[in-house]
């Protein structure tokens, strides 16, 4: 590999490291494949390189080649962490890639901004908990549930989501997390059946588990498939579907415990 002539210019390894880091971070935060490829190519183009990128659920493979000197190239594989949705990161890194392109940021500036983006704090988990509870209660109201059902769903969601947050913190397998939270939430919402609260216990039971629906992976998978990244799309689809099956199993179990002949 040729040495860089200008010592201030970053060498190909540093650039490749940063770009794969950004790609992996975008994947973890829940961007779809096309956006990852566009962002990374744009940044690489600015440094005078072009890239070939393969994005998979678990790893990113990238070959970066110098535009004028094709012997100056390396290939990297970077492992992506499992999915932790964070759209602030997606939009900030997208903005960073355009700024690189438009504002002539230097390599070090980009690196500093990248670290700022990935280390910024998330919204408080308690606020998220309350908002998710309200959201699911509103969902129940959309399905024409009465006040009893709305109250039950609010309580069930708060407990279920709290459980999910705790289990994710302890790094328990995500399929088990989804099954357990769905089971607990639907069991609480199912109390409406047991004590004959209100006239729409069915709606309470049905909407109690909806906060778990993996909407973003589902939509991302279809977007990927439509845009031609079929393999990644199918991986995401299988992931989302298995989560939905887990939700169904959780719901199923609590329905069996509550006694189906009443439903």
């Amino acid at each position: 590999m040729k040495e860089n002539i200008n010592p201030n210019e970053p060498n190909i390894q540093e650039i490749a490291d940063l770009l794969t880091d950004i790609a992996a971070e975008l994947m973890t935060a829940g961007a779809h494949t096309m956006r990852i490829i566009q962002n990374i190519s744009r940044m690489a183009g600015k440094f005078g390189y072009f890239i070939e990128l393969s994005v998979f659920q678990q790893s990113i493979m990238m070959t970066i080649t110098h535009k004028e000197d094709s012997s100056n190239r390396i290939t990297l594989i970077k492992k992506a962490r499992s999915l932790v949705l964070n759209f602030t990161i997606v939009s900030d890194l997208s903005a960073l890639s355009w700024d690189t392109f438009d504002k002539d940021l230097t390599f070090d500036e980009i690196k500093i901004r990248y670290h700022e983006v990935v280390t910024q704090k998330r919204m408080s988990r308690w606020l998220v908990l309350i908002l998710v509870g309200c959201a699911n209660a509103a969902f129940c109201a959309l399905f024409k549930g009465d006040l009893y059902a709305i109250g039950l769903v609010f309580g069930a969601t708060i407990v279920g989501f709290y459980l999910r947050q705790e289990m994710i913190k302890k790094h328990i397998n995500h399929l088990i997390v989804f099954t357990t939270s769905a089971f607990v939430a639907s069991l609480i919402a199912g109390l409406g059946y047991v004590f004959h609260l209100g006239s729409t216990p069915e709606v309470a039971l049905a909407s109690s588990v909806l906060y778990l629906i993996p909407g973003v992976p589902l939509i991302n998978s279809i977007l990927d498939i439509i845009e031609g990244h079929v393999l990644t799309g199918i991986a995401r689809l299988v992931n989302a579907t298995s989560l939905i099956v887990c939700i169904a199993i959780g719901l199923f179990s609590s329905m069996l415990i509550l006694g189906l002949e009443k439903l």
Binding site: F87, M123, V128, L131, A135, N136, A138, Y211
Partner: peptide, 14 residues
Amino acid sequence: LAAIASIGFAVISN
């Protein structure tokens, strides 16, 4: 109601 629901589901993805 849809707006409330959407706010709650949006904050999950930060």
